[in-house]
Simulated scan of single mutants.
Amino acid sequence: MEKNKVLLVDGMALLFRAFYSTAMSGYFMVNSKGIPTNAVHGFVRHLLTATNTFNPSHVIACWDMGSHTFRNDLYLEYKANRGAPPEELVPQFDLVKEVTEAMDIPNVGEVGYEADDCIGTLANLYKKDSEVYILTGDQDILQLLDHNVHVVLLKKGYGNYDVYHAERFTEEKGITPQQMIELKAMMGDTSDNYPGVRGIGEKTALKLLKQHGTLDNILDNLDSLTKAQRTKFENDLDMVRLSRQLAEIHCEAGVTCDLSKAQFNMNRDRVMEKFQELEFKRLDQII
């Protein structure tokens, strides 16, 4: 019996990517009702191109549910460097979910968690019996790579992908996908606004992980580090431990989705009706 192939879609990553690819030139595709639709249109194009490429049996879209998550409770400055979303994008947050609903794709999210956490939770749930593909532009999700879990990274344009499996990641990085959490804990993340260990970059962090295996082992053996490295860790001991919590995708969010409700079998007439309502063009050829 052929395994299910489940496509978990990082909705926020696709939506933001689609928005900024056209917004930089001021092209917002405002329809006759005055509603900008560029992000939703691009999202749908990314999604349909991916489903045509990977032929999933099931599709689920995962979303952030507000900007405040448990990570903000752990660290007040988490993502504090990010401004409010552009006004042209705001009405498209709800609109995109209307479109996925019209495509019979379940929308999944949990207040207090990020889309990544929902994806990790669902990937763990399905990977025992299904092949899981995660569609995203966010390399942080590479930590979820596992047997039966693959990550499809969007590249520039449409239909261009970098497909990762766990073995490829280990061959390239020399560490396991799970160790990526501790790599990020040491390096920090400027996008998410946490510093890790100041002065420790990817090259040094990778070297230490390969030598010691885990962050705990590194911290237990600070005397074996160079004097400069030891000083950096000692100055940021609390932060590196906190950064590990911030970097790890939480795979126990309170989300679930019965796969019977996620079978990818669009009603073309219903979808085309929604596209016409939004005044979308050039999508009928890929649906």
Rank of each mutant, 00 (worst) to 15 (best):
V151Q: 10
T136I: 10
L145T: 12
Y164K: 09
Q143N: 10
L144C: 07
I134Q: 14
I141G: 03
D146S: 12
G157V: 04
D162I: 02
T136L: 09
L144F: 07
Y164R: 06
L145N: 13
L154T: 03
G157A: 04
L135T: 08
Q139A: 11
N148E: 06
L144W: 11
H165I: 14
L145G: 11
V149E: 01
D162W: 07
V132G: 04
I134Y: 12
G157N: 07
L135P: 14
I134F: 13
Y161G: 05
N160V: 01
S130R: 12
N160P: 00
I134L: 11
D140N: 09
H165W: 15
Y133P: 01
I141D: 02
S130V: 11
H165V: 15
K156N: 03
G159D: 10
V149Y: 03
V151P: 01
S130Q: 12
K128Y: 06
V163Y: 10
V163R: 07
H150Y: 15
N160W: 00
D138H: 09
V149N: 03
L145A: 14
N160E: 03
D162R: 13
G157P: 06
T136N: 08
V132P: 01
D138G: 00
D146Y: 08
D162G: 05
V152S: 07
V149R: 01
L144H: 11
Q143L: 09
V149D: 05
V151D: 07
I141Q: 13
H147S: 06
Y164M: 13
D146I: 05
T136K: 05
D129R: 12
I141K: 09
Y164I: 05
D146C: 03
D138E: 05
